[in-house]
Amino acid sequence: MINSAHAGTLESSDVYIQINPIEEDIVEIELHSSVAELYDDMIEELIRDTLKEMGVTGINVHVQDKGALDFVIKARLQAAVFRACGTVPSWEEQS
């Protein structure tokens, strides 16, 4: 990952995700949720899994959750990563 990027909105049911490259080879997550903290662990796990699938580390992820469903968080995070890399999904490699 080379650039910073963002995706999503602050509107209800959505999530606003900002990602920034960092020096260390880790995934750093800052999560702010306007809904229950109950789901914080699940959201964090989802973010880690999604980044793992995409093979991304060395990243700081800032998440402002407005009560988004799992697939929304995943979609926004993927969009942010693709934007940061300046690429589009290579669907041929996925199923």
Binding site: A7, G8, L69, F71, V72, K74, A75, R76, Q78, A79, F82, R83, V88, P89
Partner: peptide, 14 residues
């Protein structure tokens, strides 16, 4: 366009 495409892709499978 890119973000909406991913959103719909995932929604379709939900």
């Amino acid at each position: 366009k890119d973000s909406a495409r991913l959103m719909v892709y995932h929604a379709l499978q939900h």
